[in-house]
């Protein structure tokens, strides 16, 4: 069972983790070097996406069989994920325990870049959930708009940093077209929640959201959910496992009708 949590250091990563790492420039990627070294210790194949490896770890210090995927066409999330999956399959054949991915995310300049980033992160999240691989996504905070970074953080079940950096909610894969939500969805994170759900809805007409770990959702959060479902035609969301206060508020808010493409199941 994957656990939603905050890590003090990358030493604490476990199989299946998908970690948001806000890189502190002062650290000069020292954490990355121990992450790489632990990979060798546990028998994981290292896969580096982007140029981080060349900055953080000298190439000649990388374990043998490590792979650096640093190609322009990897900006396409499908191409990126296919390349990572290939390496994961090869790792199994080669006798590694798993793959240990280190991806430095860089802002996309074109319009819709934030949405593309979410799509990319959700694919990595599904990959980590399904394969048991370890995926660490590094963000240099200075390069990012705060709202984009907040959205990205929310689609990682783990983050590395202080308590203050924890997102109000997290969304993570719980199977095919099934996503778990953890925490509180309120007006301060409603936009991030809407963006995350919209990104999920882009790929499939029906999505299941597990709300077992949602403490509460306010009016703005409920509206964000409904708006995400209505963003594209013929979409439907089934919410399962919601607690009593979430189901009560949903009914009171007037959303428990057939007109709303979100069903609050028992």
């Amino acid at each position: 069972m994957r656990s939603v949590r905050a890590l003090a250091t990358l030493d604490e990563v476990e199989l299946g983790d998908h970690v948001c790492w806000r890189v502190d420039p002062a650290d000069a990627f020292a954490d990355a070097r121990s992450y790489v070294a632990d990979g060798a210790l546990y028998g994981d194949k290292l896969v580096i996406i982007g140029s981080l490896g060349t900055v953080a770890v000298q190439r000649d210090r990388l374990p043998t069989a490590s792979v650096i995927l640093d190609l322009p066409h990897l900006a396409d999330p499908d191409v990126m994920l296919a390349a990572v999956r290939r390496e994961a399959s090869a790792a199994v054949r080669e006798g590694f325990r798993s793959v240990r991915v280190l991806a430095e995310q860089t802002p996309l300049a074109e319009p819709g870049g934030a949405e593309e980033l979410l799509a990319r992160e959700l694919k990595l999240e599904e990959f980590a959930s399904e394969s048991g691989a370890i995926v660490v996504c590094a963000f240099r905070a200075a390069q990012w708009e705060a709202s984009t970074l907040e959205q990205a953080t929310c689609v990682h079940p783990q983050e590395m940093g202080t308590r203050a950096a924890r997102p109000a909610f997290r969304m993570f894969s719980t199977g095919t077209d099934s996503w778990g939500v953890d925490g509180v969805v309120d007006s301060e994170c409603a936009a991030a929640f809407n963006a995350a759900v919209r990104a999920v809805m882009r790929r499939t007409p029906m999505v299941k959201l597990r709300f077992d770990a949602v403490e509460m959702i306010d009016a703005a959060g409920m509206r964000a959910l409904v708006d995400a479902a209505r963003h594209l035609p013929e979409r439907r969301i089934v919410v399962e496992g919601a607690n009593e206060i979430v189901r009560l508020c949903w009914g009171l808010a007037g959303y428990a009708t057939a007109d709303v493409p979100v069903v609050m199941a028992a």
Binding site: D218, A219, M222, R223, L248, C249, L252, A253, G254, Y255, T257, D259, V260
Partner: peptide, 19 residues
């Protein structure tokens, strides 16, 4: 007043009164 499903806002104080 009870909100309609298609109503954009106006749910906050309604929820508060109900809770």
């Amino acid at each position: 007043s009870r909100p309609e499903a298609n109503q954009i806002g106006g749910r906050g104080l309604w929820l508060v009164h109900q809770l």
